[in-house]
Design a protein around this nucleic acid. Structure first.
Length: 378
DNA sequence: GATCGACCTGG
DNA sequence: CAGGTCGAT
């Protein structure tokens, strides 16, 4: 039986990308609620699905190591472009059939020993996913120059980086996030994939599945199915949004929003059921290349008032659309066009002066914004 | 615009 | 109550 790869064991083939820990912290980036698809499967080893493949990632001081597992009876590694086309017409049934008959040769062939062309694609895919061309060190310096509060605490948390996720996965994961907390969202997304996604491979009793394509999510039976899986009222939102995209826009629509201006993309997303300002901003920031999008929740609002003396919404009780936009604008003015990236460190701030914050605040603790253990090793 | 209650489920 | 959204005041 296949097992999760471990760098120290070395039985699996590992490839690497030069990457300083200061430019990427796997634990903070993968485990803080951007993507709900990664699990720590060994010490410092993160396993998840990305680009239609199962990966295990780990890092040393100056190197990012990755192992890509072969999918028994699946097609070659796909890149971002090809995936885009694939989201369209065909669904699992057809895909599975095609897969089992053709591509026999690759079943025998483990990716561990596969062509350098594949290796190159994998590296490219990973660099794209982590957006390694964006130099985090430069951004940190800019934010620190502009923001005294940032400079006080940010240096402790270098390497928190924005992922460039698949828009379909990002959208439907964050529709699940409403009125909900991270651990449950993770479970829901997992059940969603296991039920509607194409199986990829099995590692140590864990079955990994691709994220379901739009077509599968749009099926009218999906709402009932997801309600059974404990999605609650979000079941309808998921199915309806998928259906709306498929029927009114087409399967490529989400991807085309990558080249639309920020506010235009956000408005477009907001026409989908279950997508408000917060979810739309999450999708813009984490999958549509809108680095200026700042998802605002009550926690960010508190930080804005407490740490930044932001006057917006003074004496207001609810987070209205107007106030939401004002707070976003406030941080965009402060941090510039990568404000969304800077915003992802906000949870780290409250953690950094967590002791004082917790004593001063009240006794609610860190409010689940950051999960326990996330700071280990910092 | 701003406020309010409902919406599913589990910790 | 939870990292929200929707529809009705």
């Amino acid at each position: 039986m296949s097992q999760h790869a471990l760098l120290s064991v070395g039985a699996k083939a590992w490839r690497s990308i030069p990457c300083l820990r200061s430019e990427l912290r796997l634990d903070l980036t993968l485990g803080c609620g951007q993507s709900f698809r990664w699990r720590e499967t060994g010490e410092g080893h993160w396993t998840g699905v990305m680009g239609g493949r199962v990966w295990t990632l780990t890092q040393t001081e100056d190197t990012l190591w990755y192992h890509v597992y072969s999918n028994p009876g699946n097609t070659a590694l796909i890149n971002g472009q090809k995936r885009k086309a694939e989201v369209g017409p065909q669904h699992s049934e057809k895909k599975l059939k095609q897969v089992s008959t053709v591509k026999k040769e690759e079943d025998e062939l483990d990716l561990d020993a596969v062509s350098s062309e594949q290796d190159e694609k994998a590296g490219t895919l990973l660099r794209d996913y982590f957006q390694l061309d964006v130099k985090l060190g430069d951004l940190y310096r800019e934010w620190s120059d502009a923001d005294q509060h940032f400079s006080q605490t940010a240096h402790i948390f270098t390497g928190v980086r924005m992922l460039r996720q698949d828009p379909v996965e990002c959208l439907f994961s964050f529709i699940c996030s409403s009125n909900n907390h991270i651990s449950r969202i993770q479970g829901m997304v997992e059940r969603l994939c296991n039920t509607l996604g194409t199986p990829l491979c099995k590692l140590d009793d864990t079955h990994y599945h691709d994220f379901p394509p739009l077509q599968a999510l749009a099926d009218s039976k999906v709402e009932a199915c997801l309600r059974d899986l404990g999605f609650g009222y979000r079941a309808r939102f998921l199915q309806q949004s998928a259906h709306l995209i498929m029927n009114s826009h087409g399967p490529d629509w989400l991807y085309t929003l990558r080249s639309a201006p920020y506010l235009q993309a956000r408005d477009a997303l907001r026409t989908l059921p279950g997508v408000g300002l917060k979810v739309a901003d999450c999708v813009c920031l984490m999958s549509l290349d809108k680095s200026e999008a700042v998802p605002v929740d009550t926690h960010v609002w508190q930080i804005a008032k407490r740490d930044y003396n932001c006057a917006a919404g003074h004496g207001q009780k609810t987070l209205t659309d107007k106030l939401y936009n004002e707070i976003g604008d406030f941080f965009r003015k402060l941090w510039g066009c990568y404000a969304g990236w800077a915003h992802s460190m906000v949870p780290c701030f409250s953690l950094a002066d967590g002791r004082t914050a917790m004593q001063r605040d009240d006794s609610h603790g860190p409010s689940g914004y950051i999960q326990a253990g996330q700071l280990n090793g910092s």
